[in-house]
Design a protein around this nucleic acid. Sequence first.
RNA 1: GUCCCCAUCGUCUAGUGGCCCAGGACGCCGGCCUCUCACGCCGGAAACGGGGGUUCAAACCCCCCUGGGGACGCCA
Length: 462
Amino acid sequence: MNKTITRFAPSPTGYLHIGGARTALFNWLFARKMKGRFILRVEDTDQARSTPEMTRAIIDSMNWLGLDHDDGPFFQSQRKNLYLSYILRLVQKGNAYYCGCTPDEVEAMRQEARQRGQKPKYSGKCRDLGLEPGPETVVRIKAPLDGQVVFNDLVKGHISFENQELDDFVLQRKDGTPTYNLAVVVDDAEMGITHILRGDDHVNNTPRQLHIYQALEITPPLFGHVPMILGPDKKKLSKRHGALSVMAYKQMGFLPEAMLNCLVRLGWSYKDEEIFSREDLIRKFSLENLGSSACVFDMKKLTWLNSHYIKEGSVPRLAKILMDHLHSEHISPKEMYLEKIIPLLQPRAGTIKEMAEMAMFFLVEDHKLDYDQEAVQKFLTPETKRLLSEIASRLEKLDSFDQEALEQDLGEYIRNKEIKFKVIAQPLRVAITGKTASPGLFETMEVLGRERVVNRLKLMSS
RNA sequence: GUCCCCAUCGUCUAGUGGCCCAGGACGCCGGCCUCUCACGCCGGAAACGGGGGUUCAAACCCCCCUGGGGACGCCA
């Protein structure tokens, strides 16, 4: 059995978005599962739209997700001679020919075919003219005129096309550059790719690519077309249609493991399980469990997964990630201090961004604390201010300022006053955090420390 | 228009002829816990698109319809 080799072949004309990331993930997973190789190939034959920045961004995204490649990145723009040699070979074998039709003429042919109720296609006018190469000629494949192309899709099963539906498509442009279908076939063949997992939108390219393989007399790889990820409106997700870059999710405070977990469940499942670590996935992934119908990406589920991984995450790591988010808000706390705050926020935050917001009251100076005015109105009455003032004095004299001591002391206080804890809880919380919702009071106070707690109480009780 | 593909709760899905008057998860609703908000726990509403077959038996197999998606470039 030959070694499994998969590839991810993005075109650097845009960011890596969810659809692409999932395709990359599936290919990566399959390679890892089969102990094969995963190749990264940049399909930048469209010089006008491809940019090095996008290549960089795509690789950054893959690094963030931890989808490491074993070979590459290879750039199609640097392999032009290779493609040209294949094209020449095709022409010499009589499987391709030079065509002098202008784009306008071809367009007219397409219109005509459409009017006859057929699929728009090139008529094959130059097919047997034996034209020579020239500045205005392209190279077209000499595709079979009848019969059908059949392949067994790894996820969809048997798929077939009538050859009459296909036409003699272009292999080499007028400017001498190879087209997508040609370059893909040459590269997949040259790189020994065994399995191609790609988006559903490529099924229509498959018969064309099969024609090239056939003309070249090369055994094609296996194809598997994974269903599209649709937007909430069920339309194809694309750069200009609601698809955010993977890095945008990073900025929103999602963890890569949550991202991966969410992505893999779009079109793949394993029994009733929902949570998969990277190791789980490599162990459990299989092509058989890939689904075949399109799906919709759900942000709510991503957020749930993210909150799950936040709860499970190691505090030092979360601290580093949180720090990055705070830096972009121009706040630079001590990492040690963040590590004390994080455990209080872990069960509460859906994203790291949210965690950053929730951590704010721990990080700003007392006089800069942002108070919820409505809460202040409601809970900081003359009555409760008196209580807070008394509490401030008591806390100043407390021997130790940990949760246990605080709970004990305040317990003693309410017993003496013969009031319920509820009476002072919200006023305390508002005075200390500025809000009506926060982690537990005692733990919050301990982490905040005596000085700031007392200070805030005094500030708000006068 | 033509071709290809798809079709289970709002969403992601399990289900490969009897275990399914359909299971799990997110979300939603209700309750418990409780110093607030969460977490957690318990409970609830919620789906096999329609019609024909095949079969003793169909969500599962076949056909038709409908609906949805994708593709029809000298883009990838």
